[in-house]
Design a protein around this nucleic acid. Structure first.
Lengths: 333, 333
DNA sequence: TGTCATGATGTAACCGGTTACATTTCAGGT
DNA sequence: ACCTGAAATGTAACCGGTTACATCATGACA
């Protein structure tokens, strides 16, 4: 493998001069510069980045922890991360944790073992048991999408409470009074915020909360299908259902149709995320659009700020949502 | 940062002994081992992997080039890659090329600059202009899903021709004689094979090929929507449409319904891939199931074989498909 | 007691860049 | 010609592990 010493020899200069020619060409004389560049070309020299990283103690790698890349919303966030990272000269090490804690721990270690400079988490778990780190070396990390209250790091998210309230108010505005909700797993902060927004809307409209109308799901179409089955089977079934993700909404719509009911004529269904398939479901989904790619880009920007030492305290950034009204919700009748 | 020298000092031994204790504990005496391990714990020592990689000249990183991670099929393949890589102690550097050649070139460079040991490509482009590499250092690469004929590297794929033939024959078996096809971009080898399989089926059934029934799409729901519009607007419209991806099929179904026709009563629609949403579309999609995660796992296994020098020649591996019949196809009437 | 094999440990070179510091070169002023 | 300072270049230490080789300790055996 051609290394800097070979190039130096070929050009008849020292390794330092070669290094300088490539890193700051303006401080070497034009004559030498030409000699060196010629030698670089001749030798087909490419600097060994492992050596550079080792010396500079920075890998310019970012670890991204994602529960499932198969979730289309996360996929969009990762696209944004990838794009911004590449622009700034960073690479993305992807880790599909599948919720397994040992996976998360493995990847968390990549920072302590210097395989990566920082971490972006798309789920708000704390993969870092407190005792795993020396207190004097805080882990450069940002949370995207979901945020733990106690997380001591920067984060970027939606105002989930306001968004959930907005879409619930949309349903109330259509005349619905019994509104079911298919929510996410209990311990998710996302779910907590969205349930709170849903409650806000009911309360503002003077509708009493019926806890039995809240069904947990798992953010998959199948879990939406199952949950909708439970809601629809009731005698006092709701006339509208707010799902915490489009994937669950699509599952719910299928179940509702299978039970012989129509959407939105008999039951209105609203989703959350505005994934690509949302406008291709039948009927097209009313939902909350999230700027998924922007989450990714923002998260990278914040992490790099931390890494380059420009930023100390934890910052929060809230991105705007948009209520997208399509055909799956209609006036109650 | 605590390094191996600090640990050695703490334990009162040499750095070599520390290194040996951690790498091959059996060749140090139990007494020393205990001393060293105690020092490691006390110092909270984690080996700096950058140094290890630098020394061993291996990063244990794999670059994955993917056109769009937003495509759910690719997302599944990546899941498989990720899982297998992690199991074997490798990490995944994700590159969303978005079809941009400069992106592909950037990531291809990661191998020559020693940021990664090898490449897995999910699209069969050749991101490596011939002159970019010294002929004596072939690039460790495998193709997954899509394969260029001239590619000099191992690959894992489906027998696309046979699969396309199988699903076309399913349609013919239902009595359809005019069968449209929404295919992918012209230059894709995938499309070429699948079109060939479609033609095989027609020929075997004695149906003349009508080239005008082949519409190009872009593997997105929207492009399926557009292409279906063209097919359905014809006076002699087909009674069945085979789409080269489920995403296009879902778009096509929406368009067909919007035009006032029913699926499958008026037009049968078949897809390809069996993505998660395939069984949640209305009607549920008849399609070809691909073992997407297995593609990823196989690709990793093949690449590691190349990397560890066990394998020289290019191998091809063909994984099985499965025809999944759901409600979007029916007997012609 | 001396010799030798064996196992345990230490010493230092090495991977391939970067960069602080030393040295050389050279232009400009007297 | 001589001095001075800036610019250009060279020398070598350094990053943090691994490992070939050297050294040392121990015990068996003649």
């Amino acid at each position: 493998m051609t290394n800097i010493r070979k190039v130096a020899e070929l050009a008849g200069v020292s390794v330092a001069t070669v290094s300088r020619t490539l890193k700051s060409p303006d401080i070497v004389s034009p004559r030498t510069r030409d000699k060196v560049l010629k030698a670089v070309r001749e030798a087909g020299y490419k600097p060994n980045l492992m050596a550079v990283q080792f010396r500079s103690r920075r890998t310019r790698n970012l670890v991204v922890l994602v529960p499932t890349i198969a979730n289309t919303f996360f996929a969009r966030v990762i696209s944004g991360i990838q794009e911004a990272a590449q622009q700034q000269g960073y690479s993305v090490l992807l880790c599909n944790t599948l919720g397994r804690e040992e996976s998360e721990a493995t990847y968390a270690k990549m920072v302590t073992t210097r395989q990566a400079d920082g971490v972006i988490q798309l789920r708000a778990y704390n993969p870092f048991p407190a005792d795993a780190f020396a207190p004097d070396t805080p882990l450069p990390m940002v949370n995207a999408c979901e945020v733990l209250d106690e997380a001591p790091c920067s984060s970027v998210k939606l105002d989930n409470r306001a968004a959930a309230r907005a879409i619930t108010e949309h349903l109330i505005g259509l005349g619905h009074r019994r509104i079911g909700m298919i929510k996410g797993p209990r311990r998710s902060p996302l779910t907590r915020d969205r349930v709170a927004g849903y409650c806000d809307a009911l309360e503002a409209a003077g509708i009493a909360l019926d806890e039995s109308l809240l069904c947990p799901g798992k953010f998959t179409p199948h879990s939406g299908y199952e949950a909708a089955g439970m809601l629809v089977a009731r005698d006092d079934r709701p006339s509208a259902i707010f799902c915490e993700s489009d994937e669950m909404a699509i599952g719910a719509i299928q179940r509702i149709k299978q039970e012989g009911l129509r959407v939105p004529d008999d039951i209105s269904v609203a989703g959350f995320d505005d994934i690509a398939f949302a406008s291709f479901s039948d009927p097209p989904l009313t939902t909350i659009a999230q700027p998924a790619e922007a989450f990714g880009r923002e998260a990278v920007a914040m992490l790099i700020e931390v890494l380059e030492g420009r930023e100390e305290g934890a910052k929060q950034r809230i991105l705007p949502y948009e209520l997208v009204i399509r055909g799956s919700t209609a006036v109650k009748r």
